[in-house]
Design a protein around this nucleic acid. Structure first.
Lengths: 331, 331
DNA sequence: AAAATGAATGTAAACGTTGTCATAAATATG
DNA sequence: CATATTTATGACAACGTTTACATTCATTTT
């Protein structure tokens, strides 16, 4: 890799002038500029983003961090896609950190990101009380949270109306005549799990139904927990006649269990999931689901972050996007 | 962020000594070491990976590039997961580049990766003749290819026996009595599409069936192409009675079309897909599929890369992993 | 014609490390 | 005791940029 020095030598100028050309600053002679551009081409010179980053924090070094809990979850993949989309358009590269709901791993990744001098970070933190992340925010790193916020901390945030989504789902089940509606939730420490629980309870209440806590199970947000918790629910003396699942992976897990027990959907049991997938209509049966605009969440977060990088002072913005219930045949 | 200099000052030593402690080199007094460690803790010092990377290419700067065609494809997500797994265990961070089958985007990402002075790269290149990538390989960057190789270039490679996978799928269909078996392929420029075609043809041939080229359609490897090409096939005067789909996304697209036309699987038409998904048993109907060990591909590639980084000279290794046919109810 | 301006360029420090070399003190060797 | 060796440490250059400041020269202003 040719360096600026070699270019300068070849063009017979100093590095400063080369730098000026590269950052198309004024006051450089047309002929010199041409000579330098020629040398750049000849040597196939590419500026080192590393050196740039080291030299000045002020100038953008075009590196973003993305910290997500679980890349196996199609929802986060879509968020990532949205982020990648705007990052690419602004010439940013992305360091992807997938911490798999493991707080130790999250911690290590945050350290690495800091150490890489990223310009900004988009994160779905493991916990609302993430001290390390809070510190990074208060130290001035541009941060945008997605899906989950940080308690007592002013930070840009893009999420979805979780309570409303759950309400829509459960209300829909009730209107369809289901009486014993279970909720298979994700990790209790994740805010969205709790908001969705609130929506679940509110829908029951608004419809004059009583809340039965044996029908609510918190898991670890993964596929396997969907499998197992659904099995538990089905083996209850009075099993549910419908189940509301807390995310993508749980839904697929629950479906697996239901199918393996040979139950009919929605005849024996109905199901509505949080998170839609574009292939949800090819599931057996086509799944009724609450759709989050995942790609848009990613895009918005990316835009907010890039804004914030260029204006650290602007007041934090919190965006709550809308969800919608997609009715198919599982309910 | 405290720098080494501040630590040195605080501990009353020179930066050299601090560096020695950090790289636990010998010949540093126990008492001094203790003092330095204390200072490091007090200042919450973290070494800058950026400075490290700039300073010496010799010492590992712990940054890997991953270049994949399509993060929406669960196969690549799994590969990524495998890579991430071993990267994390070796304290490497990952710059993720998703080029969405767009060669211009791929080019830009390769430039960025180079400019970021990555230690090594795992790539599924857009084309076998990718000049830019070939150049990077010959310039000495450690590279491991996954899923697709580079022509006339010695490079580590991890892939799967595509021909055999296709053969298994098509042979299975034939044994089940299907007569007109279509193949909805991905992009023709992608080697795996062609190897799968070879397997498809070979299975026909070995079973004494004639090859009908109107039953083979190449697309762009995305969901939408599955939708459309399947529609084309179904509206043929003599439509197929079975279809072999070239990847994950195509399978889901084809399913969508089949369902939307109200056809029964496998009664009206059978389907077997390349790429399994763990939730394939929840599809309607449970999908018969050729399984690639995607996570293992990622892991192996990660291991090969880390090996190669530490030993640039070792002869290239090409690994071909096995596929298996998972029989469910769509055939 | 001297002074002031401005354009074009160069010099050098800085960013935070690593690593080579030099130096000083302590210890071992004869 | 003189010399050689080892141990512990520091000084400084280098990596490839950016940028503040200095310099040179041509042009304009008085």
């Amino acid at each position: 890799m040719a360096s600026m020095n070699e270019v300068a030598k070849k063009a017979g100028v100093s590095v400063a002038t080369v730098s000026r050309v590269l950052n198309n600053s004024t006051n450089v002679n047309d002929e010199t500029r041409a000579r330098i551009l020629k040398a750049i081409k000849a040597l196939n010179y590419q500026p080192s983003r590393v050196a740039k980053r080291l030299r000045s924090k002020s100038v953008s070094s075009n590196l973003l961090g993305v910290l997500i809990p679980d890349i196996e979850n199609p929802f986060y993949v879509d968020v990532l896609r949205g982020i990648e989309d705007v990052a690419y358009n602004h010439n940013y590269a992305i360091i992807m950190c997938n911490f798999g709901q493991d707080e130790k791993k999250e911690k290590l990744y945050l350290e690495i990101l800091q150490s890489e001098s990223i310009d900004g970070l988009i994160a779905a933190p493991a916990s609302e009380d993430d001290l390390q992340l809070k510190k990074m925010v208060s130290d001035g790193l541009p941060v945008v949270c997605v899906d989950r916020g940080l308690s007592n901390t002013e930070v840009d945030l893009v999420l979805v109306n979780n309570e409303r989504g759950a309400y829509l789902a459960v209300d829909h089940l009730i209107k369809r005549g289901y009486k014993r509606i279970a909720y298979i939730a994700g990790m209790q420490s994740i805010p969205s799990s709790r908001y969705r629980e609130m929506g679940y309870k509110k829908a029951l209440e608004d419809n004059g139904m009583t809340f039965d806590e044996t029908l609510v199970r918190f898991g670890n947000s993964k596929h396997q927990s969907g499998v197992e918790l659904c099995r538990e629910l089905l083996s209850l003396p009075e099993p549910p006649d419908a189940v509301f699942t807390g995310n993508n992976l749980i839904t697929l897990g629950a479906l697996e269990t239901i199918h393996s027990q040979g139950l009919k959907i929605p005849g024996d049991i109905a199901i509505v999931g949080f998170d839609d997938m574009y292939w949800a209509s090819s599931l057996n049966p086509p799944l009724t689901a609450v759709r989050q605009p995942a790609i848009e969440i990613g895009r918005r977060a990316g835009e907010l972050l890039i804004q914030r990088i260029s204006d650290t002072k602007r007041a934090p913005i919190q965006m709550m996007l809308n969800v919608e219930l997609i009715e198919r045949s599982s309910t």
